[in-house]
Design a protein around this nucleic acid. Structure first.
Lengths: 226, 226, 226, 226
DNA sequence: CGATAAACGAGACGGTACGTCGCGTCTTCTG
DNA sequence: CAGAAGACGCGACGTACCGTCTCGTTTATCG
């Protein structure tokens, strides 16, 4: 729940109506009458969704469960999201980890930079996220949008950082100038998701170090990572 | 459908479970009276399962759909598999590509060996498999067994080959003696599944080459792959 | 709508209940601050209620429909009536036909008197009322109060007149002195409602004449009505 | 429940499909494959419906309640009846009282015949029926079919008997030859339903006697009933 | 060769979640 | 404050799917 407080304006969600032509020049900014949607309900519902998701997984999760836990009516949920899948997609988008610091501390070596990227969140939090993500894999097939959302929210930020670090290493003369930055940048994410889904093992520091030292650094630099 | 002909005796599946009392030394060979199970139904049902799976994905697939397409009754299906998940797991196990040739042609270089591993099945067949695999991801969370099955059937064989090739390259003096064979061997599978699930792009020859040339070979050999 | 013009101050309805504290002798005449209730809304809402009721029946009728048709907010409706049932009860009470003339023209015979009671409103109006009344039957079970209201508003006045006419006929020597005035007075209402609800036929002049001539007059007088 | 045992073949219900053209001369009697509908479920569900209806009325009744009490799934209910209304209509049709004996005992007088018609079922049973009927009035408006069903099942049989008795009285010379048999035959039903719905009083022996002695007999015979 | 018993196609059954809709309340903004 | 607009909590509706069961039929083995 606490993890939710940071999202004041959650992903637009299903709010985007297919209204089509906005119409005459009249009064687009004319304040719409009626009670406004309570934005706090969005956050409550999303938080409840993540809670339930972490507890029973996607298939075990019931819309009534979510509504009940959020102290909301089902109609309130469905007013915001068209379906269970939509709701979960948005909820996951809220898991967005705080973006990797843009001020990348230059440790002087590619390995040092990459290791510095490894954040060790609270174990409990990490397990929760993992539980959610695996429980949510069910959806990736049905909702292509989810793959995109997840990628953008969870994967791309870190990949972007890796790309930057690799570029810096090349400029620094540490990495080979012809190294395939694009491919290498996605190795971490690929290995992590593979480990999570197929191997069902935690993506811990040790594992990430073995990816850095066994794959990325040697591939980029041409020498063992350690 | 044609892909099915090879499996005359599909994985035993859950059919063995509900036997009940089997023990009494009395008459195991005593042929039970009554009609015998028609073995051809297994193959038909599995084929129908794969077809439906490829068309509508795991969650869109209905047991009635499968039964209808296989011209079978639901009881006939449930007599052989305990649940939808069980059925799908077995069906997927039938996708097992013929194991990578054990006689690994030694091309003289790690890159050559790895490239030789790339088989190019018909595009249509590959897309079908891809569709099935993504549609099946829904299950990985619910059925840990499936992850294991899939890994063993589809992933491990190729990983084992890669391991062997890497070892050979080390012995040959081409690859660094300290290279992390274990981790590198799983890179292909990880990158492929990531591309399939998250990026929803085909795992084509070009992509596999970029993994070989951009990651594995440079990481192992310490020099660009090409 | 036109039928509505006569009711400027409709039955107080349940509006009196939710007032809360009213008591304190302090300042009953002290004009409360704030905007005064717009009395014209009452009539509009009641009219809309009858319209909708006539079109779709009680169960088909929605509070939103009523509010929308009356160009009113739901709160405005609920500020005046506690519930859908309350609203409908009041609306129906407005259908009250002007009470049968108290100056009963003495035609000289029971039959003449009874026939004189038959008013023939416009056919369209009668059908509308009929539609409303049947649509309102849904409520009789849930709201015992409604039965009473309806009886008092629509039935009793005519029954009272019939009673009076019967008494006059007895005094006049036309009717048997021992005739069961009480029971006979309710025959008309019973036959009319039965015809409306169960037979779904209009209560037209012909039907009323057959009740007068086939039942009431012969039962009271001991001779055929005509 | 016990009241249900007599109905082996309940009203056809929703079983009547709109199949249209039956098709080629082929095999109309060809046995339809698949499990047959369990007829006992019909009876169980109808009985449960009447029970619930008697306890909480039409609006209080829930399809889940009915299904649960009948130990049935909702699908089983909806396979047989299209809607809650349909179900209730059929259930009510099962209340059909055992048809008035066709061998009408000729008591020698119209009054005697009519009084002999009054059956006094167990008080509890009568109250149950009354509760059901009033709870069901909600439907008469929405489902014109219900009015017809009710009339045929509950009203018409008795009316037919009354008609016959009146005819006999005319033949016997007891009743006036020009009495309006048709109208008089519906007086009982009309008075009873009016008393039930509007007056909410029980249709007991005393009441029925007052109808016979105060209305029917005097109207038909031209003399007080007693 | 007839009896027996299991497997089969078809589909009804009990259960449970889904997504919709209505009621009566609450909240926002305007007069 | 009243009024229009509409979001909210609640709960019933009718649908769809799962996994089981029951039909009547077909197919094998046994007596």
């Amino acid at each position: 729940m606490a993890a939710m407080t940071q999202l004041e304006s959650p992903p637009a969600g299903a709010a985007a109506l297919p209204e089509g032509a906005e119409g005459a020049a009249a009064a687009p900014p004319a304040v719409r009458p009626g009670r406004r949607r309570d934005p706090s309900r969005d956050a409550d519902i999303l938080a409840a969704t993540l809670d339930v998701l972490a507890e029973v997984g996607y298939d075990g999760m019931t819309m009534d469960m979510v509504a009940a836990r959020a102290q909301a009516g089902k109609a309130t949920v469905y007013r915001r999201w068209e379906s269970k899948a939509d709701l979960v997609i948005d909820a996951v988008a809220c898991l967005k980890s705080p973006p990797p610091l843009d001020d990348l501390p230059d440790t002087g070596s590619l390995r040092g930079d990459l290791v510095a990227m490894i954040r060790t969140p609270s174990v409990k939090d990490a397990q929760r996220k993992l539980r959610i993500m695996t429980g949510l894999v069910s959806l990736i097939d049905r909702e292509p949008e989810l793959a995109e959302t997840t990628r953008r929210a969870l994967v791309e930020p870190r990949a972007a950082v890796t790309r930057a670090l690799l570029r810096r290493a090349v400029e620094r003369g540490e990495a080979r100038p012809d190294c395939d930055i694009e491919t290498l940048a996605s190795v971490s994410a690929a290995m992590a998701s593979y480990r999570t889904l197929m191997l069902r093992k935690p993506v811990d520091r040790e594992f990430l170090l073995s990816v850095i030292d066994g794959v990325i650094v040697p591939a980029a630099v041409g020498a063992p990572g350690h």
